[in-house]
Design a protein around this nucleic acid. Sequence first.
DNA 1: CTCAAAGTGTACCGATCGGTACCTCTTGAG
DNA 2: CTCAAGAGGTACCGATCGGTACACTTTGAG
Lengths: 187, 187
Amino acid sequence: MRPTKRDELVQRALQAFYRNGFHATGMDKLVAETGISKTSMYKHFRTKEDLILAVLRLRDEHFRNWLYRRMEELADTPRQQLIAMFDALEEWFAEPGYKGCMFIKASSEYQGASHPIHKQCADHKRMLERHITELAEKSGLTDPGAVARQLLLLKEGAIVTAHLGHTDNPAQDAKAAALRVLSTHIG
Amino acid sequence: MRPTKRDELVQRALQAFYRNGFHATGMDKLVAETGISKTSMYKHFRTKEDLILAVLRLRDEHFRNWLYRRMEELADTPRQQLIAMFDALEEWFAEPGYKGCMFIKASSEYQGASHPIHKQCADHKRMLERHITELAEKSGLTDPGAVARQLLLLKEGAIVTAHLGHTDNPAQDAKAAALRVLSTHIG
DNA sequence: CTCAAAGTGTACCGATCGGTACCTCTTGAG
DNA sequence: CTCAAGAGGTACCGATCGGTACACTTTGAG
């Protein structure tokens, strides 16, 4: 198993797409920013769309790993981990290059519900929902599914609000709301 | 005051941009979909960006008018109107052509915080926040600002979740969470 | 009727779009 | 050393991008 050029391409393409958007990042710009020749790119991926799908796959893996790990580092019990999600988000929002959620942006540039990119974004959100639901179950909350969906609404809201930048600390606002949601769902 | 061609152009450009995205909608496509000649467009707007700004101005006016009016139609007291926001959102999500929030999409295609389009999107969200804050004040809630921000996080979350389409009824999930938020903020 | 304002049609500009053809250079296993 | 596989370089394809030039038609107020 070699960890080479192809992965490097996907990695750097991720950064370029995240910074500048999908339609706004042409293949020529990708050549300039990654230092990888266009010929090589099209050896690995048949189309730009295929490359984007690979980029989203990588992003999904990185983001979920990061979030789950950070939630576990920040709190011990499942219930506290649910709350800690918003502290993790606050850290993310504070990063210099923060530009919102890659999946929200991808799904809004490729809007068709049947478009492969759109579907892959929905899959990402579904996997998040499953994990949060499991945590809610372990917390012994009444109606874990509903709690998970409500917490994730707060998460998505905080992500886009942090990107718009019209509010000071959306992560802590979301955390406050999450606490109220959880407190009314004690089993 | 004439209500003519220029407004018609902005109106139809709005629909085209909303359906297909900003970068993905070229000026030639706009000519095809609006039936208005490119020459005329560039008589009214110096650049595509200027046209987009006008489109967003119209969208802001339409959306806020619609939401505020619908909230008042659906409920009598300020407090009930805050909750009714989520019923109004549910109606919006159910519309055939629903494709998410135009401002979230615009700000994620024009990401620079100093970009005029991005700033105008932030302004829209600020105006919403002010109105919701006023309603929270009239409701006699403790810390109306915090309540407003939390409700709006739920609103944004519901909007993107409805667009992703991986969850059945995000508006009602948001409403449930909103009820819990409000119930803990009784003055 | 006159005449300027407003709108149209068409052809075009250089730049960039996603994607391909073709040839060279490197590299590592046999 | 040999030679196929992988990567790079360059030039190019037709289409589309945002934007302009210019000549024409419509229209409404004086």
